[in-house]
Design a protein around this nucleic acid. Structure first.
Lengths: 195, 195
DNA sequence: CGAAGTACTGAACCGTGCTTCACTCCTTGA
DNA sequence: TCAAGGAGTGAAGCACGGTTCAGTACTTCG
């Protein structure tokens, strides 16, 4: 009955995602997740060594989804600079569409093992930025710059700008366009060329 | 014996700062702080309603110090753009000089009341940036832009770039210069004018 | 000097939430 | 049909850390 076993496991992960999306990390207690999955608390430990492993796996899954969406957007049409803009737009729009979840992934206090995972999350995004920035600098469409710093700064900038609306609940309609304009300036791109 | 009373209070606050600087928030338990201050745990509750109030007061004090340093740097000589650069440089250099503490103030997981204080912390810095950016835009030395977004993005960018070195322990010598160059581009200032 | 009040102590208390484990139930195969 | 074994249960156990409070020591004033 391997299928059934995996089904339970999936149910637990799905329940954790649901609780995380609705109530943030606080709702993600072992008892809560088990109840939501329609399983006893004890059963959680049949599938996961402990809470940390469960939550980390949830994080990895969600982050993977975001990274994939961003990578896909970056592979779309347009020049090198358009791609960096696409990363920012995609990331920001997705975050604003699922604010509670985005806040949980980006900023909500968590304990150490999950925090470590969050660091990885941010680094993956930084690398995505850095790759495209490096390429664009090499091609001469962006001025010379330390790609790693630019990438880290952009990740921080996007996250910080979003966290405000995310925790306040409301984002202005032109938050994302403004963020894009900031990004273009920060990259050193010609504003005029990418309105 | 008012003086003595205040002395105890100060000792507790100082002990909390010391522990925060050395071990981060984890070391800031009531028992730990009391021991460090040479006081019993019970006495903590003579001076503070609870742990939250103690830690929040510690945060406020530290943040006030940072804000003051930054404001002072921004009041120095130079044009409007130099002032924004001064904010970034001062903030970054101070953070890199007290990494553990900066990490605690900027990024370390804390519980709700302190998190709220951290939000205030970031907002104060954003306002400092926003004030100078607005002024510079009005004066025509920066292109038109939403100052609030630029300010939030810069705070996020600086924090993110610093958190890496802060948690890793080592910062490259040109982290700050690179950060300044990023800032200048992001503001839309002429790079050439402010090397 | 003695009584009253106050600063101070620190071990016990309590709430929270992860983890365990003795037990039940259900499926499986002879 | 009926043992046997594993899946599943959920209440009790446990660790952690903030908070409390009855007791002690010290200071002050009559």
């Amino acid at each position: 009955m391997q299928a059934r076993l995996d089904a339970q496991r999936e149910a637990l992960l799905a329940a954790a995602v649901a609780l995380l999306s609705e109530q943030g990390y606080a709702g993600c207690s072992v008892v809560g997740v088990a109840a939501r999955a329609g399983v006893s608390t004890g059963s959680v430990y049949r599938y996961f060594p402990g809470k940390a492993e469960l939550v980390v796996e949830v994080f990895r899954g969600l982050v993977g989804r975001e990274v994939q969406a961003v990578e896909q957007a970056a592979d779309g049409p347009g020049d090198l600079i358009d791609r960096v803009v696409a990363i920012v737009e995609t990331f920001a729009n997705r975050a604003l569409k699922a604010p509670r979840l985005a806040f949980a992934l980006l900023a909500e206090p968590v304990d150490a093992p999950v925090e470590a995972e969050r660091l990885v999350f941010r680094q993956v995004f930084q690398q995505a930025f850095a790759r495209h920035v490096t390429e664009a600098v090499k091609a001469g469409v962006l001025p010379p710059q330390e790609a790693a710093i630019t990438a880290a700064a952009l990740v921080g900038a996007v996250a910080e700008v979003l966290v405000g609306p995310l925790s306040a609940g409301v984002a202005s309609a032109d938050t994302v366009p403004n963020l894009v304009r900031f990004t273009l300036r920060a990259l050193g791109a010609d504003d005029a060329a990418h309105s």
